[in-house]
Amino acid sequence: MQTMIKRQVATQACMDRFADKPYAPGVRDCGKLAAHALHKLGRKAPLLTRATHKTEAGALKYIRKAGFKDLVELMDATLPDSRIPPAAALPGDIIAMAMPDGDPFGCSLTVALDNGRILGFKDGVCQVLVPLAYVTAWRV
């Protein structure tokens, strides 16, 4: 039970910091959202927190310079051996959502909430969403 309370507190912290706020690369983006969730659950995420980009192109450059093809590879390195089916995600877990074909990031990182909902960016704002197309997920 303690674990679920800790997860609820972590997801509330993500909601307080990101929900209903505009997308701002390097300040409020999916990588910063995922890093915040990891931090609140007691996990370090140096690959996410070291990024100091101010544009999407800068974020992509950082990912590639770090030796990764996309965000999925970066998250696999951040949370090794932690992949889970998205349907098994608990509040606070990270879920990679599908992006349009050709998107260089390969996915958009979101935070699992409850009742199958996620916190992520859509239409330039961080909001609570009902996911449609998953890529994968990681247990935090």
Rank of each mutant, 00 (worst) to 15 (best):
T49E: 11
C107V: 14
M15W: 09
A87K: 13
A19C: 10
L48F: 13
T78K: 05
Y23C: 03
R50V: 13
Y134I: 06
W138R: 08
P91L: 12
A66T: 08
M75I: 07
V27N: 06
D101K: 14
L47W: 08
P46D: 12
L113K: 01
I118V: 14
A137V: 07
A66F: 10
G67C: 11
A96R: 00
P86G: 09
L90P: 07
A51V: 06
L48E: 02
A34V: 10
C126D: 11
G124Y: 01
A45E: 01
D93K: 07
A24W: 10
Q127V: 14
E73G: 02
R50W: 06
A34E: 00
L132G: 15
A137T: 08
L90D: 11
A19V: 06
V27Q: 12
V135R: 05
K40I: 01
V125K: 05
I84G: 10
G31A: 02
K44G: 04
L113S: 02
P85G: 03
S82H: 10
A98W: 11
S108N: 11
R43F: 07
M97Y: 12
I94V: 15
P86V: 09
D29E: 08
R50Y: 13
L109I: 04
D76K: 13
H36Q: 12
Y62M: 09
G120I: 02
M4I: 15
L71T: 14
I118S: 05
F105W: 10
L48T: 06
F121K: 00
E56L: 15
H36L: 13
T136N: 03
L38I: 02
L38M: 12
G31E: 11
L71N: 08
P131F: 07
D70W: 04
H36C: 09
E73S: 00
P131D: 01
A35E: 01
T3S: 14
D76Y: 12
R83P: 07
K6H: 04
I84R: 13
V135I: 15
P80Y: 04
L71G: 07
A45C: 06
P131G: 13
D76H: 09
G124P: 02
G106S: 04
K21Q: 10
I95M: 14
D16A: 14
Y134D: 12
G26I: 00
H53I: 00
A112W: 02
H36K: 10
A66D: 12
E56R: 15
A13W: 02
I5E: 12
P85W: 07
G116W: 02
D103A: 15
T3V: 08
A24L: 14
V9G: 03
T11K: 01
M1P: 10
T78S: 05
L79Q: 00
A98C: 13
G124T: 07
D20Y: 07
C14K: 02
C30F: 08
R64I: 11
P46Y: 09
D16G: 07
L71W: 09
K54C: 08
A51R: 10
L47N: 01
I95Q: 08
R117Q: 09
I118W: 02
Q127C: 13
H36I: 05
A45G: 03
A35G: 00
M15G: 04
R83N: 11
T49K: 01
K40Y: 12
A89P: 03
I94R: 04
Y134K: 04
T3H: 04
T11S: 11
P85Q: 11
T3N: 07
F68L: 03
R117T: 10
